[in-house]
Design a protein around this nucleic acid. Structure first.
Length: 401
DNA sequence: TCTGGGGTCCTTTTCCTT
DNA sequence: TCTGAAGGAAAAGGACCC
């Protein structure tokens, strides 16, 4: 199998590409302010001078993405806005526009599907493509078809993309990073030692900050360092599953097939407040947000055609510590009131004396509406409401709902 | 220094039943 | 009736990804 991993760049203002620009931060407010000032123009024709710069931004949030000119200053994805503002105060700040991203996302994926029908969706701007059975897919090791894909995407959308070609998904993903933003990299098995082993372990898709820190503590910095360890040593220190996976990854082994179809497991909505809120002092505001989140999740479920029976909440305290609570119902639902009621019961099981920075609502154990398993239907028709004795009420704490 | 939102998957803990 | 073990399901937490 030859896996291609393609990722496209999201910036859609060609005139801004050479400038330091970041996307992210306070979303709607910024978008609305711009539209108010320039109501006669579509968003992508608003003059550069109208966009706010980073140093004037006050508020929470992180950078979603940044131009390469901005990255020169050390600014990058997932960085806090305040830190980015210190590094590059003159950067232009653009609002995120997920509706627009989704539109382009569908467009570029369809262009790829027209050429190569075996494609795995990896999010808004990334896909794996299997070229094994595509006519001409092996020419120049895949370079020819990768070029064709790049050209088609650019012609139709103006977006650039980088593509990695390799024998499996793991290496293809790493290869796609070699020549950003618009490169094509072909990595073959014999390239493992010279091209992959010198890279930091963090470059492996699946090694995050925690695992990397632990690896570094053991003196393992590069993928080559990792490959030099015994499999059994890695299993002893990182667990049976993850340790073995690390070893295989270091040796470029990855047997995973492309996943071309999948169903969602859960649907959720969450929001971070402008300032931390308190269950008693900000009871009205918090209650309104909570209701809105439940209504949004219900609407998402109905629009996408799912019902679920595990209702959960997520809280993040001002200390950034997160907690979750959930409860599984006897029935499947996509009803806002039922979700609100059950999530409200979950809220009674957490500490509400501390200030909150985030609140979220989630529905899991999803099935397609109309495809509830037969044995579940029997439960549905004879369901017995569980009593509240099943819930551990926390006394002496503020009761929000 | 400050840390979004929407997900998936895995491990550990807790709870329930036998 | 109590107790403990075992196993499974549900709940909770956390790492990771885009």
């Amino acid at each position: 199998m030859d896996a291609f991993y393609a990722s496209v760049e999201l910036l859609r203002y060609p005139q801004l590409k050479a400038l330091p620009v970041v996307i992210g931060g306070g979303r709607r407010r910024l978008d609305e302010a711009l539209r108010e000032q320039h109501s006669e123009l579509p968003l992508n024709e608003i003059p550069v001078q109208a966009f706010p710069v980073l140093k004037d931004y006050t508020g929470r949030g992180v950078i979603t993405t940044a131009t390469y000119a901005a990255r020169q200053f050390g600014v990058g994805s997932a960085m806090g806005m305040m830190k980015a503002a210190r590094l590059c105060p003159q950067a232009i700040l653009l609002p995120v526009d997920f509706d627009e991203y989704r539109k382009y996302s569908r467009l570029f994926k369809q262009l790829i599907l027209d050429i190569a029908p075996v494609m795995e969706d990896r999010g808004v701007d990334e896909v794996y493509i299997d070229f094994t059975d595509v006519p001409g897919g092996q020419r120049e090791g895949g370079r020819v078809l990768a070029r064709l894909i790049q050209k088609n995407i650019f012609d139709a959308t103006g977006l650039t993309c980088s593509i990695g070609v390799a024998p499996n998904k793991l290496i293809a993903k790493m290869a796609s990073e070699f020549n950003k933003p618009r490169g094509i990299s072909v990595v073959q098995p014999q390239d493992l030692q010279p091209l992959i082993w010198p890279l930091a372990c963090r470059k492996i898709n699946g090694v995050g900050p925690k695992a990397d820190e632990k690896l570094l503590a053991h003196g393992i910095r590069t993928i080559g360092d990792l490959a030099a360890r015994d499999r059994s040593w890695l299993v002893d220190h990182f667990g049976k599953s993850y340790g073995a996976w690390l070893f295989d990854a270091a040796w470029g082994r990855d047997e995973r097939r492309l996943v071309t179809e999948s169903e969602p497991v859960s649907i959720s909505r969450e929001t971070t407040f402008e300032r931390d809120l308190h269950a008693v002092h900000d009871k009205a505001a918090l209650g309104a947000v909570f209701t809105r989140l439940c209504e949004q999740v219900a609407a998402d479920l109905q629009r996408k055609g799912y019902v679920g029976k595990t209702i959960g909440i997520k809280l993040r305290y001002e200390t950034f510590k997160s907690v979750t609570r959930d409860r599984t119902l006897d029935i499947y639902t996509a009803d806002a009131h039922t979700i609100r009621q059950t999530a409200g019961q979950c809220l009674k099981r957490v500490d509400l004396t501390r200030r909150l920075r985030l609140l979220g609502v989630r529905v899991g154990s999803l099935v397609k509406t109309g495809e509830i398993p037969f044995f579940e239907k029997k439960v549905l028709s004879s369901s017995v409401e569980r009593t509240d004795s099943a819930i551990n009420f926390v006394s002496d704490t503020p009761q929000l709902f």
